[in-house]
Design a protein around this nucleic acid. Structure first.
Lengths: 239, 239
DNA sequence: CGCCATTTTGAAGGTTTTCAATGTCAGTGG
DNA sequence: CCACTGACATTGAAAACCTTCAAAATGGCG
């Protein structure tokens, strides 16, 4: 298994009011905390910036940290021993990742484009939880939400054909964007076709063919390779 | 979508020491709580018994409760509009299910054989959390654990062929049994072949062919249709 | 403008599904 | 005791869908 070296010491920033001004707070696990507690919370968080294709951490690394995406997109993926890749998810601002219950990460996390994350020591989080029940509830809510999303993906990968998978994917990206207040149409796909293939359990050729087919049916329109306009939302949904 | 009626009012039992004597407590989300708190906790829990194929709840039902399997197996599955089924998971004693963050269940839950569950009102759980941080931590740990398992299934459904899926499934059942102190070989498969197919994203015929192939390679041996002896654990693992 | 990576399209091949038939096994009744 | 039944599982052959291999098209960037 070939894993490239990660830059462990990123440029960072921290100050006690940063969290208060965080634009994505209302969509993060931190949202449940009161404003007066947020200030304290800032002190245990550290902002880090990653460039395109940079690894945030690798599968099997010691999992000391939890992360929150504050800007950009992150892909998390599992490596098989023979080099196959399965992308578990594409993360958006407000999504959190890492491993709360394991001492090793179960997947790799990599920046798609420039990414800003908040980083927390798990030990700090666990101490903070003791005094602030709302943080625990926030984490529980966010983890349950992630669980719901992944369970839906089980359905996609287990039962849907290639066109249905692509349709569901486009719809999900649109919905995720709406959730955090971005425009839901047209949508941009920041990841490559190969990434989409590794996410949907297909090959890059089948992804391309599925997009072409949706285009041919006039359900979507391609503004360019990375920008999709949805003509018929209803046709993307499973009847 | 045809959903059969659920028996909402099951025979129940509750008393303040039941949780203390619960054999599966050490593998449940309740394990983190101190013994003196467990007694109080018993008061918000209700034991319910379900017969084979009985629904514990249905997708889209109002989700007032959280459940903990204490004995038997439960399958949770999603229904598609056209009647297709995708099984999300087979649950074992100690696993918890329901929906913490949604007011509707995202899947159906059905008993495989006779099943005992502990049932909790979410409102009770949320109140209890306020006074007992360990319960929140326990729930968070358990939810994170479920998330890890489901993420692994993404990999199985997205990247593995039929033989690999069947191998992984047998191995997972064996490991899950070991986790709660049952013998890990031979293993029993309480679910039908159709269930296994709906779990692995295959057809019943492909499941059958995969089992036959593993048998032919002498990696496993069938004691009977529901009992499997594993000859070569290593051969079940992905190289 | 030309290069190179990425994407799209085409045709052949392979794995799983579909459709159909046979086999297994526990339960029932003659 | 054994044949019958019905549900479940296995096996076989043809068809469908996705992958693989190959080639052409697109698009960004020096």
């Amino acid at each position: 298994m070939m894993l490239q070296k990660v830059n462990k010491d990123k440029p960072t920033s921290t100050n006690s009011s940063r969290c208060l001004n965080c634009k994505i707070r209302s969509h993060s696990f931190c949202r449940a905390m009161k404003e007066e507690d947020i200030e304290d919370f800032s002190c245990i968080s550290l902002e880090k910036i990653f460039k395109n294709k940079e690894n945030i951490f690798l599968q099997e690394d010691v999992a000391n940290n939890l992360f929150n995406v504050t800007s950009g997109n992150v892909k998390i993926y599992k490596l098989l021993n023979d080099g196959r890749i399965q992308i578990i998810g594409f993360l958006y601002p407000g999504d959190f990742f890492g491993s709360y219950n394991n001492n090793k990460y179960n997947y790799c996390a990599e920046a798609i484009g420039e990414v800003k994350v908040c980083s927390f020591l798990k030990s700090d989080i666990n101490l903070f939880i003791e005094k602030n029940i709302m943080l625990a509830k926030g984490l529980l809510h966010q983890t349950s939400h992630e669980l719901n999303l992944v369970q839906d993906r089980i359905k996609v990968l287990g039962k849907l054909d290639s066109i249905e998978r692509m349709s569901t994917f486009i719809l999900n990206v649109s919905e995720q964007r709406a959730r955090i207040g971005w425009q839901n149409n047209p949508i941009s796909l920041p990841m490559t076709r190969q990434d989409i293939a590794d996410y949907l359990g297909l090959t890059i050729e089948t992804v391309s063919r599925s997009i072409s087919e949706l285009k041919k049916r006039s359900i979507i329109k391609l503004i360019n390779k990375k920008q999709i306009f949805i003509n018929e939302f209803d046709q993307l949904r499973l009847e």
